[in-house]
Write a protein that binds this DNA or RNA. Structure first.
Lengths: 335, 335
DNA sequence: ACCTTTTTTGCAACCGGTTGCAAAATAATT
DNA sequence: AATTATTTTGCAACCGGTTGCAAAAAAGGT
């Protein structure tokens, strides 16, 4: 097998501690010793074993990256940013897929068994039971792309979904739409729920507007399409807040299939601003989540948690979302 | 910190070996001992430390999952299947993102430092230098979604890209197209290159057909659109083999922007059959890669490599791809 | 009840490293 | 040159487990 500490020590004729110190940044070694050890290590192709080291240092640099969202292309981008960002910090993402039915407790135990230094949960739909299970094992956790308003004591990074819901509602009202619908993702999703909360609050302040709401079965194209198909059978609204881009794009397809045109016959407002929303054959007006910022901030927060050994109070970092004007909503009615 | 072997042994009043054995499947322990230990473990909330264990067993159950493709939604599906499939086998994917410029040697060393049991490379564009670097550290490797015809001694699972290129060419010829174009992904991509090889081979056997080819800059919507825009400025062909769905969908958008209709004015054939290809507003005729099979077979192959401790000769598992008829190609010309 | 065979258990060494502590070596001071 | 302060090094214990081996216990045979 590959060379170990002992092999190097033997070859260099020094103690194992010396070798260990050469590979430990900031340890006390003379330059003479260092070059000597390095030479032997070089010749043997020695690389310290990170996991053996972790036994004493109690740092594996492994970060559990757990998600249940492997269908929404938005999350591919999220994974891209997370993995490259973590790698830059010398951290290693252990990807955990909890879609399908997984036991929260088992997942938490698994992460403990692998001694991950921390856990980042990247999902807008992960259930409360997972939050609780993770809370029990004492590992630093950061939740992203989700938001419990009735928050347990956890770290959160993301947009303020409730505020985004309010923002969306005001946008549609400003455009002069008089019948407005909220078309959410799955009812169980926290993100959708919070967006609904904000949206309906504003609507309740505007009794003159005919407000309705419904939920797609999943954060997917097919579900969005299906739900919009259903809506178009009945009294359709003038505009819908799709609450997610993929769902909205599915809805657009349904509208097209009905021979209706956007934004003349019906307006659609998405949320996320995935790459596809900008494709010229889609051109979805949407509210952008600052994904890169959210991810960067999450990693930064995780790094500081690791530093301070969990001494820190949990915090919520909420970032602003903003409208990206494209072609699926009519312009603001000028007063 | 959390309970260790020793704590449990102490509490149960037995040796540490006994405790270790209760948690080692197939070890010799009496039922009396087992229940006694389990009770103590239960009370202390003990879970064996996987990494410490790996020190002696030489198995971490970590699998490096390395990819450089974080923009093509096709790969989100691939990651979904890989992560859940690996988890089912009790294996843990350490996700490594090598997009951006990463040093192959460093990446290989990193994987060795984390003592991964094996590496799965999921990418159609990963360079030969990575293949070589991984080859040097003695870790079982499986390459998926890629294919070197001038193959080094490595394990490969995927479709036969050259055969798929031939298949595509024959499909277009059967439809009676007389000017045909190959529009590949990036020139550097192995997959695109092999597809081109097969495609052009068939074309060279049909001198009556006006054959041309070009390459998009990346496996992305924007690149496909841009390339098709460029092609439409000149003497466009009657049909194109897009060599990737996302690229093809980009091309469709360019065609639409030019006011041309599909399949009447121009035919497009994709490859992959990503979910989006089936969306009713896209409806792309495409050649399907059997993704689920490829992933399952890769995992199975990896599992058997781990079993046999690398005694196995490298093998190539090539799976069949097949046409999915939709709306972007005209029907076969009946003779 | 006694001897033999089989199963269960504990001891102690080991996996590949790190680290507190004291001894040894080097540098600084007088 | 002798004394003191500082840096470097090795010893040995430890991180949390596993495992070969021999002793102890249990089971089987007569």
């Amino acid at each position: 097998m590959s060379a170990t500490l002992k092999d190097v020590a033997l070859k260099a004729g020094v103690s194992t501690s010396a070798v260990s110190r050469t590979f430990t940044p900031g340890a006390s070694v003379s330059t003479k010793m260092r070059t000597r050890v390095e030479k032997a290590a070089e010749e043997l192709g020695y690389q310290p074993n990170f996991l053996a080291r972790s036994l004493t240092t109690r740092r594996t640099k492994l970060i559990g990256l757990v998600s249940d969202n492997f269908t929404n292309p938005f999350f591919l981008h999220v994974f891209d940013l997370f993995t490259s960002g973590l790698q830059e910090q010398g951290l290693r993402p252990l990807l955990v897929n909890i879609s399908g039915q997984h036991d929260p407790v088992e997942t938490a135990q698994m992460l403990r068994q692998y001694s991950v230094d921390g856990v980042i949960v990247a999902s807008s739909t992960v259930g409360r039971d997972f939050v609780d299970a993770f809370q029990n094992v004492k590992i630093p956790i950061v939740y992203t792309f989700s938001r419990y308003y009735s928050s347990p004591e956890v770290n959160i990074v993301g947009i303020d979904n409730r505020a985004a819901g309010e923002y969306a509602a005001n946008i549609l009202i400003d455009r002069g739409y008089e019948t407005i619908g909220f078309m959410g993702g799955p009812k169980e999703a926290i993100s959708t729920y919070d967006r609904y909360l904000g949206f309906s609050k504003v609507m309740s302040e505007h009794p003159e507007i005919d407000f309705s709401y419904s939920f797609a079965e999943a954060y997917s194209f097919a579900a969005g399409r299906k739900e919009m198909m259903r809506l178009l059978e009945g009294d359709k609204a003038e505009a819908y807040f799709g609450a997610d881009d993929v769902v909205s794009i599915g809805a657009l397809s349904a509208i097209e299939a009905h021979g209706l045109s956007v934004p003349d016959d019906i307006g659609i407002l998405g949320l996320n601003d995935i790459e596809m929303a900008g494709w010229e054959n889609i051109n979805l007006t949407t509210i952008r989540q600052p994904v890169a910022q959210i991810v960067a901030s999450s990693i930064e927060l995780m790094a500081s948690l690791l530093e301070r050994e969990g001494e820190q109070y949990p915090e919520a970092r909420l970032l602003p979302s903003r409208l990206v004007e494209r072609g699926t909503l009519r312009p603001p009615s000028d007063i």
